[in-house]
Amino acid sequence: MSATTSPMPQSSVPGRAKDRATSEALGRRRARADAIVRVLCTIATILGLFFLASILLTLVIRGAGGISLSVFTNVTRPPGSHGGLLNPIIGSLIQVFLATLVGTPIGMLVGTYLAEYAGESRFGQVVRFVSDVLLSAPSILIGLFVYQILVLPFGGFSGWAGIVALAIIVIPVVVRTTEDMLRLLPNTLREAVIGLGAPKWKMIVLVCWRAAVSGIITGVLLAVARVAGETAPLLFTSLGNLNWSLNLSQPMSSLPITIYSYAGSPYEDWITLAWTGALIITLGVLGLNIAARSVLRARR
């Protein structure tokens, strides 16, 4: 490459001989295309961050002013009478907690099946595929489904129906993280436990689950974050309730539904409450996400 025998300096380049001006122009064009794309990509990233910042800022500007003790101590009241968000907050906590309680063990067992039992079997592949589809399936359809199986036959909207709908959403999230985390464990660990004479279920419950616990907690936190903000499935199941009620057989209030109905109302104080609720729920959801990440990072 260093010593060229031909009189023309560019002849080592295959193809038609190019003069210096052409190749320099080409180089400039390539550099320019590269610079343009890099600028555009940077702008795209700034745009993405701008949207997040805009949402958070809007929430803080419109919602923070409404935060006071009465939001957490008063129940929802008619417009103009200083209502709070106590029953939606409690209703959301109850429904999300029980849904997680129901969904997590099932999700863990499915994830365990996929990682420890299924191998490459056809059944395992189908379950994995279906679980992944459910993970991204429109949540409104889960709501319609639960309406069909629990609300219509049992004569009314209820907190239980809301819990079942949210639990169905929890399951695939926990399945995904449980399977991923169990697959990260080295096989030597399993072999060591089996080699000590432990039965397989003890190996899974006492060793594999314990080793993967931070990952599973991450999955549960993400699932909680996901269902805490879900609105569409609750429209058809727990419906919402403007009165104080802890009866799970009755329609039950929830934060997202209350935000939805208040935000669409013409009353100024209800809209402010909706923004306050939106701020609370977003901080909760994003906080859970960050917590989930730090749990995972602490392990590594």
């Binding site: 990233t45 961050l49 949402i55 939106a278 996400n289 960050i290």
Partner: peptide, 24 residues
């Protein structure tokens, strides 16, 4: 940090996008 921020955008509940969209 930037990657996390983008992923947090994915975690914002749908209804918040609705309110933000409607009012902003």
């Amino acid at each position: 940090p930037v990657g996390t921020a983008i992923e947090l955008l994915a975690a914002v509940p749908s209804i918040i996008f609705g309110m933000w969209g409607f009012f902003v």
